[in-house]
Structures are given as C-alpha cells and as structure tokens.
Design a protein around this nucleic acid. Sequence first.
DNA 1: AATCCGACACCCG
DNA 2: CGGGTGTCGGATT
Length: 948
Amino acid sequence: MNAVEIEEAVSDLVLQPFDAAEFPFQFITAFGAKKATVDRLRKGDTNQSDVGGVLQRNNIHIGIAPAGEVAETLARLRASPKTASAKAKFLIATDGETVEAEDLIGGDVVACAYADLPRHFAMFLPLAGISTVKEIKNNPIDVKATGRLNKLYVELLKDNPDWATEDRRHELNQFMARLIFCFFAEDTGIFREHQFTETITQMSHAAHGSGEEQWGNTHEVLTELFRAMDTPVTHEGNLDPRYRQAANIRPYADAFPYVNGGLFTGAVDAPRFSRTARAYLLRAGELDWKEINPDIFGSMIQAVAEDDERGELGMHYTSVPNILKVLNPLFLDDLREQLEAAGDSKQKLRNLRKRLGNIRVFDPACGSGNFLVIAYKQMRAIEAEIVTRLGGEASLKLAERRSAIPLSNFYGIEIKGFAAEVARLALLIAEFQADCLYLSQQEARAMVLPLHKTGQITIGNALRLDWLEVCPPVGATLAEEVDLAGPTGRLALEDNGLDEGGRVETYICGNPPYAGYNKQSSSQKEDLAHVFSPLIKRWGNLDYVAGWFANAARYLDHTGGGAAFVSTNTISQGGQVPVLWPLILSLRQQIGFAHTSFKWSNLAAHNAGITVIIVGIRPVSAAPAILFEEGPEGTTVRRIDNINGYLAPARDIFVKPSSVAVSNLAKMNFGNHPYYAADLILSQQEARALVIEDSRVAAFLRPYYGSTEVIYGTPRICIWVNDADAEQAAAIPTLQRRFDSVRADRVAKPDDSSASALVSFPYRFRDQVESKQYFIAVPQTSSENRPYLPCDLIAAPAVVSFKCFAIHDAPLWNLALVASRLHWVWIGAVCARLEMRFSYSNTLGWNTFPVPKLTEQDKADLTRTAENILLAREAHFPATIADLYDPDAMPDDLRRAHEENDEVLERIFIGRRFRNDTERLERLFDLYTKMTANAGTKGMATKKSKVA
DNA sequence: AATCCGACACCCG
DNA sequence: CGGGTGTCGGATT
C-alpha cells in the first residue's frame, strides 16, 4: 500500500461505527497488514499484549479503553514490559471518542478526536514500511489532494472517452491545472474564501436520469467560470466583446476576477461530470489547499496521470534532500558564501541581489518542476536575507521590495503535457507563497492576478530539442522576457537598476531518466544516436542518461555556467567511463563536484532498485573540485584537484577494455555461455535422477560452477557433450529429450543470429572451454562487503558457467594476484558494479591490471603465499568462501595468509606495504598509465573511441 | 566471437 | 517483508 491508499483506508475506518473488538485489527489492516498476519493476531498466536490489548511484535501496541479512560489506557500500554520486549514502535489507545497515541521512536504524541485520526495517519506510516520524511509528515494534505485528484482524473477519462485522444489529452491536463489553481486560489485569498467550490455546489446540479440529462450541468458551470477568468473586467461602456459586459458573462461567474496568464486561454470546454465525478470534485475542493507544498505536491500529482501515460519518462520523483545535493554545490552554496562575504555592505548586497535576478535555472527533464521550485524557494530565501540586511522591507522603495527573481528565469523541458502544466502552476504557487512569506499576504494577493509569466516549460523530448533554443544563451533575451510580463508582472529589471552589465548565469539541473543499453527502446536508441553520432563513433554501451550529460556539456561550451544531474552510477563505472568522460573533456568541461554512489530512496511505496550518483560538470577551470564520498558513516567532503570519470580523486584516466593482458598474466577466459541451453543445466538432485533413469548419462555430466557455486562451494551439474560424442549422447533417450528442448528454444529466436547458429548443436553450450587439470575460478558477481575478492582453485573435469571467469591450468601465482587487496581495489575502481556489488570482468579488470615485471623469485614467493591462502582455508573445511570471508568473522590464520600475500605483492610494487586503498589506487592508475603509454609496442588490443 | 549490465531480481532469515 | 547478494538474457562490439 502506498501513502495515498493508507490515508483513504484510515479515513474509511473512522467513518464506520466504532467496534471496540475489531478496531485493532482494522487499524493494522489499514496500514497494509496481510490477512494472515491479522488472523494470527486475532487468534492470539502472535498477540503479545499483557494488558488485554493487541500487540504486534516490532510494530504497535493497541489498547481499547473504557469510555473516558483513554489517557490511563495509554499509560498502561507505556508501562507494559511487553511493549519494550516486543519492540513496539507505536502505542495507541482509544475508546471510540478520543484517541491518544505515541511514537516511541520519534517521540511524537497525538491526542485527538477519534474522527480526526486520519489527520495524523502520517505518523504511523512506518507501520507500512514507509519511512516518514518531514515533507509528508507535515503535509498529509499533499497525499489527500493527490488521491482525490487521481480519482477525479480517472473518472473524467471514463466518462469522456473522447478526451482520451492525443489532442484532447492536453486539454484535460490544462483543465486539471485550472481546477488546482482555483482550489488554491479560494483557500489563499486570491478568490473570496471558498468561492469556487461554493459556486459549483450552488450552481451545478448532480447528474441524474439518462441521455444528456445524466451528465447534469457541472461542465457548463465550469466552462462559464473559466470563461470569466479569461475575460478582463470591462471599463464602463466598453462594448469590446473581449471584455465582460459584452461577453455576456453570467452574474455568478462575473464575481470571479480576471486570471488568465495563459492558464485560461485556449480551449473553453469542460468535460462532462457524472454524479461520482462531481462528488470527487467537491471533495477535492473541501481540502485546505493553501498548505500545499508545490515541490512535493507536483511530483505526487504526476501519479494522477500515470496509469494511462505510455512513457515512463520523468516518473521518478527526487526527494528534497537529493535535490539539494544537486543544487547546493551547483550554485546555491556559492550564493550563500557571497552573502556571507557581503556582510552589511550595501553595495555588495545590491550586487548580489542583481546577480540573483540574472540567474537562470534550467531543468531539461523537469517533470512537474521539483528542481525548479526548490531552486526558486532557496533563491527567494537568500534574497530575503539580503533585503533584511539592506534594512528590511520598510526601508525600501515599493519597487525594491518586490522580488528581483522572475519566474521567467526558470526553464524546463518535459515530455509529458500534464507534468509540464503542473510545473508551470507549481512555480506560480511557489512564488505566491514566497511573496506571502517575505512581503505580506496582502501584497502577494495584489500582485498575483492576472497571472503573469511563469516558468518557461517546453514540452518535448530533451534529446531531440536544441537546448540553445529552449533556453537561449543571449543576454538580451532576459530583459525582453521580463518586459513581456507587463506592468503587473514581475518587476522589470530596470526598475530595480538590476540589469546593467548583469551577466546571465545558467545552471542546468535535474534527474533525467535512466536506461541501460540493453533495456533501451528503439526510440531511445534513436534519441542517443541523435545526440552522440555527431560526436563519437561508439556510444552503444552508454546509459540513456548520458544523453543529458552530453547535451549539457555542449550547452555549457556555449554559455558557461554549470550542470548537475542525479544519475545512475553506471555511467561512472566500467566500459561507459572511457566512452562518456573523454567526450565531456573534449567539449572543454570537467567534473566540478560529485556525490559517490548511494542508494536511491524517496517516499514511494516501492522504491526503484537503483544506486545513484550526482555529478556536476563545469567549464574546465583551476578551481578545486568537491568530492562528496558516501559511506556507511555518513558523507565526507573533500576539496581536491581533480575528480575523474570513475569519481575517484585522481587525475583523468580511462581504462579501456583489452582482449590481451597489459601485464604478463595468464589468460583469463569468460565462462561457458549456455545461450538457450537451460535444459543442459541440472541441480544435483535432477542429475541423480537422470543417472538412475539411465546410467550411461553419468559419462556426460560435469560439476558446473557459476558465482554462487564457487562462493558456496556447491556446484550444479551440467550435461557436457563434445562434438565427437554427440551421436553417442543422442542415443540416450533422456538426453535426446533435453537436446530437442534446447533446439526448440534456439529455433524460437530466429532474429538472434547467435541462437540460430547453435540450432544444430543442441547438445552443448555456445562455448565449450575446459581445463586439463584445474582452473582458478573468479566469480562474476559478488558482494562488496568481503575484504578480498572470492576465488578458488577447482579441479577438472568441472567447468565454469558464464557467471564465472576461469584461468585454465596456469601457475598458482595468478591466484595470488586475484586474491590480493590491490586487485580488490582495482576491480572496485574500474569494473562495472551491480548496484554496489563487484562485477568482475576479464577485459576491463584482469587484462588491464597493472603489475610490475615479476621475477622468477617473485613468482615463487607469490606461489607460496597463494598456497598458504588455500591451506589456511582448508584448515577450516568445510567452511565455504562465504563463511571464510564474512567481513566480521574472517579466521585469523586466513587473514594472516592474506596479509602475507599482500606484503609480498606490495613490496614488488613499492618496496613496502601501501598505507591505504587510496594510495593503492593512485599507484595502480599511475602504473596503468605508464604501461599503456607505449602500448603500440606491447601489442595492446585497445580500440580507441575517437572523439570528434 | 565474446562480453557487459540491469530506475534489478530474488532468496532467505 | 526487506536487506543482502548474485541469475540470466540479449544487445553490442
């Protein structure tokens, strides 16, 4: 359940007659408890209450109070030893009249009428596994508003199928935006209080009957109201039909002011309202909209249109803390520093205010405008401090009191019409609220109508549009835009004396969509081709988000300023790094700041499973770069010379995949890829059953190792048939059946040429590589929490799957390298990761691993330390690698064996142990650079992706 | 002809 | 039911 559904469930609960026996179960059900959980609690199996209530372990202790003894009951719950021992997070007591509750972790306390419980539902959200964040806790209004609008939207679409078409969808979006504005206006004094909802209640009648009559007249009333808001109030005797008198506006509508500002121009129709839709409309109007939080509301409201929107672009809402991680280092911190430096100097303060008015914020994936709204609010806060230091509003001329920050400085690109509409509106609301806060409600109201120019949101595909046209780099444009606002709009710059010589700064920000190369749709691939094909030859492995970085770099190359996005961390890893970041450098941009990988989270019920980074780019400069390193202990900040494409504090280096090792290492093979040969892979039970069925099968079975099998020491079994034995194997019916099935799977992929080519070889995997005696196995994916990479020595005839790399029949000192801390550091730095997991690669990690030339003595030493590692493991038989390398429980002898191994290897590198991993990585980067500098003579097989 | 990566997928405590 | 940890497919070089 998400927060919206929970709010509805709690609201429904308190509307029903109070049932003392059932309330505890109804309550936890409202927060998403499963039926089985509730049944067990009801039966008493899991109910741990010792005071006659209901106690759900790790969650809540609920007490039903005798009438009038709610406080006493809560005290009993609090005093109950079981409350603590069962780790209850919440207490709640009620008699059906009043409710008292306590959040034992957060410390919040609530006492209210039973019927008001829904107003406090957010406090209990942890019960549903939703961690509360300040925004939602303080503003259940946003959740309610979203739920009600969502229902209205769906209902309107159902009743007005003709509005579901491509063209009219825009009209419906605009219609919804108008409604939101009107709700907001009637609760904030822009209209008379409740004027809009009351007018609809009185003037429209609910639908009834059939035929046309079944729709009632709600749509006609709304059309008339909106027509009035689009018609200026007349001057006496003026018969121009554009004005009210001549336009024949009905009296009930004439009471509304002229709003316009683009919001009410265009289509005049309203959709038809069924009885249900009208009810939803009025219920939405009942909410107190002045508390709306435009930054989070906008994102939540996107859910309104979500079900029916085809694309998923811009759907992922960025939390406010994460937005600030982008905006603060991008430009807000600098403004604050300048404010600090200005002290009380009037001249400096005026200059800073002038600068604020010349800053443009541009979000080329703006969705409903979160980043723009937060940026606006932060800038207004800074401006307010300037005004205070200038002596407060009272000392300023009227013209100077008004904000110097025009909404028209806020630019966006958004592919979805509804979101764009919400973004424009959210900015207007943010401005109105800022005016209320920093000027006065009265002035804010006086200035808001008619609506003036808002953010300039272009509807379209950000990878197809020319950003220089969407947000033109010309300084003159700015003044022009502001003039358009007219006398009632934002203050023209000249009035404040703010324009002269003002340099326009543009900051690009946002959270664009992510899609890895093997998840991209064909149109997304075309988008990337459009961006990258003029720039570089090979771009096919880039994530969709890389298109935004490339466009931003090109834009900044024309305008200066800066750009920062939240991004999937994959663009700073593995094969994407040597493609994307040399291009950014060639466009004369560099990384100015970055946050290293952290887990994505927001208020959504189901968070996207993704790990993200934040990267800011800027024109190349000598200024220090700022690296925010995210660790388990929190975030550390470093000012350093350079941040490279791996987000490492080191000079620019690009490790390209290589098919041959740059050092003198043994060859490491990619594992055997089945390619639609699932029926050749068996569990140990299946394999036994097969042998029982026909003992001849045994000759064709091999232990089969992927990542899991190596780490847990338990192989699966595969059917392994060499070409020479194919006929003999096919003569065994139980094998033949499996071969038929493999053939069918491959035939079913006619478009996959690799699969087609294998149709005639259904008895084997695509690859068939095996060892003579043994191999060193290196799992493809493994946890990042172990202090060393997992690897093992495994005897033939076992084989590896494509989830495991193998060095066949090679000297053991190779294992010493794989198992070294240096290799752990290198793989972690230059290979891709799955989230944070290690994702091993032979081409990116093994073949590129820089190692000084090893003498025979070195090799002998490393062979010995490798043997010691294996011996130490054996001493703990049958412990698995997972057991042995548990970061909290690694046996001392094994740890010593690794220390010794590292000691020997690191002496070969620098004659002593490295101090830490940072020093290791620096040395590895240096050595790699040296070793690949004269690659031509070494026969390196790198292919350079040429930068145009 | 071989490999990279997942706005993930799944498993087990 | 969510933190911990690696499958499997299929586009790409």
